[in-house]
Simulated assay, not measured.
Amino acid sequence: MEKPMPEIRTYRFEDDDVIPNNPQLPVVVYIGAMAERPGEMESVFNRNNWRNSWINGVFGYHHYHSNAHEVLGVVSGSAVLQLGGDEGEKIGVHGGDVLVLPAGTGHKRLTSSVDFSVAGAYPDGMDYNLNTGAAGERPRALEEIARVPLPETDPLYGEDGPLLNIWKR
């Protein structure tokens, strides 16, 4: 028997003149998708060609990647993340939740449990940069966000995953 699809939520964020966010693509959150096996998060991402992976936390300041999309999977603990910049959304995340952030999406850890950790990865193993909304980075960042290709696979479900339908342009 096939496991049912988890609850999926999407969030769209406008450019706030500091954090550009993504004008085309929403954030996609898979609620509890890996709750029964959060320790396998990184290997599942890698199998689905989301590589250049790591396990750590989320910075406690607004930042974004203008040259790559990013998946974050909560391996352990819980946190409140702010997505989309200062005027964005505060989202509680728990072990097994998976967030797919399109290039340009601001994210920041507001609070977390002591054991909070996430696995991160990028489609096709892309390299990623780190932007904070500093003066001067914006023109380059906007150009880079527009050039980031859509991923060929969903980080959890591969070639048939819901991300591919949600992110159709």
Rank of each mutant, 00 (worst) to 15 (best):
M1Y: 09
K3A: 15
M5T: 07
E7K: 13
I8W: 14
D15V: 15
D16M: 04
V18Q: 14
V18W: 05
N22E: 03
P23R: 11
Q24P: 03
P26H: 08
P26N: 11
V27I: 08
V28N: 00
V28R: 00
V28S: 00
V29Q: 06
V29S: 02
A33Q: 04
M34T: 07
E36M: 06
E36H: 09
R37C: 10
P38D: 02
E40L: 12
E40Y: 13
E42G: 14
F45I: 06
N46E: 01
R47T: 06
R47E: 12
N49G: 05
W50L: 05
R51K: 04
N52Q: 11
S53I: 10
S53N: 12
W54I: 10
W54Q: 07
I55A: 09
I55R: 02
G57D: 12
Y61E: 03
Y61F: 07
H62M: 14
H63W: 06
H63R: 11
Y64H: 11
H65L: 10
S66I: 00
A68F: 02
A68P: 00
E70Q: 13
L72H: 09
G73N: 04
G73E: 05
V74C: 06
V75P: 00
S76A: 10
G77R: 03
G77V: 06
S78D: 04
S78V: 02
S78R: 07
S78H: 08
A79F: 02
A79T: 14
V80A: 08
Q82W: 09
G85Y: 03
G88C: 04
E89F: 05
I91G: 15
I91L: 11
G92M: 11
H94M: 09
H94F: 03
G95N: 13
V98L: 10
L99C: 09
G104V: 02
T105R: 06
T105C: 15
H107F: 10
L110D: 03
L110T: 05
S113Q: 12
S113G: 14
V114I: 12
D115G: 08
F116A: 02
F116S: 13
S117D: 03
V118F: 01
V118S: 00
A119V: 14
G120Y: 03
Y122M: 13
P123C: 05
N129Y: 05
N131G: 05
N131P: 07
G133D: 02
A134D: 02
A135T: 01
A135K: 03
A135Q: 02
G136V: 15
E137L: 14
P139K: 01
L142F: 08
L142D: 04
I145H: 11
I145M: 04
I145S: 15
R147F: 00
R147H: 12
L150G: 10
T153H: 04
T153R: 15
D154P: 05
D154S: 12
D154F: 12
P155Q: 00
Y157F: 10
P162K: 08
K168H: 07
